[in-house]
Amino acid sequence: MNNGPVKGFAALKRMLWEENPVIGQILGICSALAVTNLVKNTLVMCLGLIFTLAMSCFTVSLMRNVIPRRVRMIIQVLIIAAYVIFIKIVLDAFLPEISNELGPYVGLIITNCIVMGRTEGYAMANKPVDSILDGIGAGIGYSLVLLPIAMIREPLGLGSFFGIQVIPADWTKWNMMVIAPSGFFALATYIWIVRAFKSGGEKR
């Protein structure tokens, strides 16, 4: 992947579609599968990831000239962990129920490969402003995958949307949609659709 010449908003834009981290590089899907059975949780998770990505890319980029190469990984992880702790504290204070439901997955933003991938692959070699945009782009790209999946899984599985009952109560709930396997199937289908769309575009 060529990270050299991409600057500014182009860095943000390519993350949304062309180099979408989830679809293109299959990164960060642990949480993509785990939280998508409720739209509300997914939204919180996405916002958390966008914040972490933007801030840690910014910080890593600011420090890129003083980080020794040998220990760069552990320093990046520590920077990321610091922001994740910040998110966890904010969530505990303002949205305790959601924080409880998300459980370990907030903490697992630390090992979300997208964050490490962007700090290592882009922020270490680029200016702070570009890195922020790149981080935000990757975060939004991630959200663009998670939110549609959650919007399908929650109504079908629980008959609700954003916690509000949208489908009449006599609807037979597809329990399948809230348990683990459907997460795999939903993501696979989503990847299939997007790739089919992309390759169709190339042929034409």
């Binding site: 299959i26 795999f184 199937f185 993501l187 696979a188 990847i191 299939w192 790739r195 089919a196 390759s199």
Partner: peptide, 11 residues
């Protein structure tokens, strides 16, 4: 072809 690699692994 579109499902090759990661897609089919997920299924």
């Amino acid at each position: 072809p579109e499902l090759e690699g990661a897609g089919i692994a997920l299924v």
